[in-house]
């Protein structure tokens, strides 16, 4: 069943184009990678999904619902949860406060929130020794795990993860990806933005490649893995082609 469907989504930041006519789908429980070089528009897609930027045109349908009129904090409640780029944990709150806060807006009783904190801590044992520490004191990897744990507190049906491997030691990257795989195995759909193509193909079933705000390639990860055009999209070696692609369908 289709959980998320973007149709011809276009986002501008003032006069600057973020994405143009992006269409993509995520099935229930599916892991989908969103690839592309810096500035290709990957994070913009996630921001539009989370309601942080308002699309100029196009539609977002999530669980059969039109998201346009739903505000950012309410989207979280619907299970559309983002782990933002750069982790964005609250550095001057404790690890425990970071966790408990996520989903505080749902109006659940405290006991229920507490038991969810316990569940997340059980699932992310690396956080356990740090519960009382300020989150800002954690290592980068631990902060990334906290950011994922915090998102899990909100009970996602679709977890959007923006560059989870950025700036982490290789071992930590592996650990984080194992966590994400575990989350996906339990039925949570994952929309992964990642610059590390190898990692992304490893974990995802399907992938979309963005270039200059447009989807230039999409398909099963297994097929794309060996497709030279993926590398080209990253390195911009066929920039001429990309430009042509862009101008062919440019907005009037």
């Amino acid at each position: 069943m289709t959980l998320l469907q973007l149709n011809e989504l276009t986002v501008y930041y003032g006069p600057v184009r973020g994405i143009a006519g992006v269409s993509l789908e995520v099935e229930e429980g599916e892991v989908v990678a969103l690839l592309g070089a810096n500035g290709a528009g990957k994070s913009t897609v996630l921001k539009a999904l989370s309601g942080l930027v308002r699309p100029l045109s196009g539609t977002i349908s999530y669980d059969g619902r039109d998201l346009r009129s739903i505000r950012a904090h309410d989207r979280v409640r619907l299970g559309l949860v983002q782990v933002p780029e750069g982790r964005r944990i609250f550095p001057a709150l404790t690890v425990e406060e970071n966790l408990e806060l996520a989903g505080f807006g749902f109006g659940d009783p405290r006991a229920k929130r507490r038991s969810r904190v316990e569940e997340v801590l059980e699932r992310f044992p690396l956080l356990q020794p740090h519960v009382g520490k300020l989150a800002g004191m954690l290592s980068g990897g631990e902060q990334q795990i906290l950011a994922i744990g915090r998102a899990m507190m909100a009970g996602p049906r679709l977890l959007m993860v923006d560059e989870p491997s950025l700036g982490l030691a290789p071992q930590m990257v592996e650990y984080v990806y194992e966590l994400l795989e575990g989350i996906a195995r339990q039925g949570t759909a994952v929309l992964l933005v990642e610059q590390n193509v190898t990692l992304a193909f490893e974990i995802s079933r399907r992938a979309y490649v963005l270039q200059q705000g447009r989807v230039v390639l999409s398909g099963a990860s297994a097929d794309l893995e060996d497709d030279p055009r993926v590398v080209a999209a990253y390195l911009g070696t066929d920039r001429g082609d990309g430009d042509r692609l862009a101008s062919e369908t440019a907005d009037p």
């Binding site: 989370s50 309601g51 942080l52 950012a72 904090h73 309410d74 979280v76 409640r77 949860v81 983002q82 933002p84 964005r88 944990i89 609250f90 806060l101 996520a102 989903g103 505080f104 807006g105 749902f106 915090r150 998102a151 507190m153 909100a154």
Partner: peptide
């Protein structure tokens, strides 16, 4: 922004 993303 992060608070908003956490449903606050």
């Amino acid at each position: 922004t992060a608070a908003m993303l956490m449903g606050i």
